[in-house]
């Protein structure tokens, strides 16, 4: 039985192809998370401003994007961009676009949470000891807000990684798609191929996400006070 497992991965470039697929997965996740962080900070800060129109717009965006399943957004963008608007983007780019759209909403909510959860006396105490507003932001507010933010951002990263299999649906050759292709070819001769390949992919995802989750949990505990 173990022979069949070894054979699937030894055959041709199967193992190398899976690793290439993993690379595509990580690439899409990394780019989407970075873009989401940048845009999410902007949208999140918009949500804390006193301008009601900006706040309402940000809120609407947030609710809309978080209510609709990501796969639905992915399909709609994938088919609509090319068919209706004549914009032909590589599937990988569409994936990054949609994941960023979702990630930005999640990030914005984290930023808003971190920015509004600091008690008012922090800023007031800063004023009382004679700090200027920019000093208060630099030395009091931002360091504390960032600490509250970081565990959530790390979690967003693992959620992004776990979202990437969706690109399977628009035929981007990431880990899952490569796995399916290998199963299709190897499965004819090797009865156990699909069992081993999908088990392997399951553990690759675990091996990537588990350490990141643990790290986030560690930081959360460390900064609890």
């Amino acid at each position: 039985m173990l022979d069949s497992a070894l054979n699937v991965f030894r055959q041709g470039r199967n193992l190398a192809r899976l690793m290439e697929g993993l690379w595509v997965t990580l690439e899409i996740s990394a780019v989407s998370v970075l873009l989401s962080m940048l845009l999410g900070i902007v949208v999140g800060l918009l949500m804390t401003t006193r301008k009601p129109l900006w706040r309402a717009a940000a809120r609407l965006y947030l609710e809309l994007v978080r209510f609709v399943p990501i796969l639905v957004l992915l399909y709609i963008f994938y088919y609509t961009l090319s068919r209706n608007w004549g914009i032909n983007l590589e599937a990988k780019i569409v994936a990054v676009l949609v994941f960023t759209l979702w990630g930005t909403a999640e990030m914005a909510d984290l930023v808003r949470g971190a920015a509004t959860s600091l008690p008012a006396h922090q800023r007031e105490s800063g004023r009382a000891i004679g700090l200027t507003e920019s000093q208060i932001n630099r030395y009091v507010i931002i360091p504390q807000a960032v600490r509250r933010l970081i565990p959530g951002v790390i979690n967003l990263t693992t959620r992004m990684i776990k979202t990437t299999p969706f690109v399977f649906f628009i035929n981007v050759p990431e880990l899952t798609k490569v796995g399916q292709q290998i199963v299709e070819v190897a499965g004819m001769k090797n009865y156990m191929a699909s069992f081993w390949v999908y088990a392997f992919i399951f553990f690759i995802y675990f091996a990537v996400c588990y350490p990141i989750s643990r790290f986030s949990g560690f930081l959360e505990k460390k900064w609890e006070n």
């Binding site: 969706f166 399977f168 399916q180 069992f195 081993w196 999908y198 399951f202 995802y205």
Partner: peptide, 16 residues
């Protein structure tokens, strides 16, 4: 919590 649903389903439906 650290694996995607899609892979869990692939394994259940095509692997098992």
């Amino acid at each position: 919590r650290n694996t995607p649903l899609m892979i869990q389903l692939f394994f259940l439906y095509y692997g098992l």
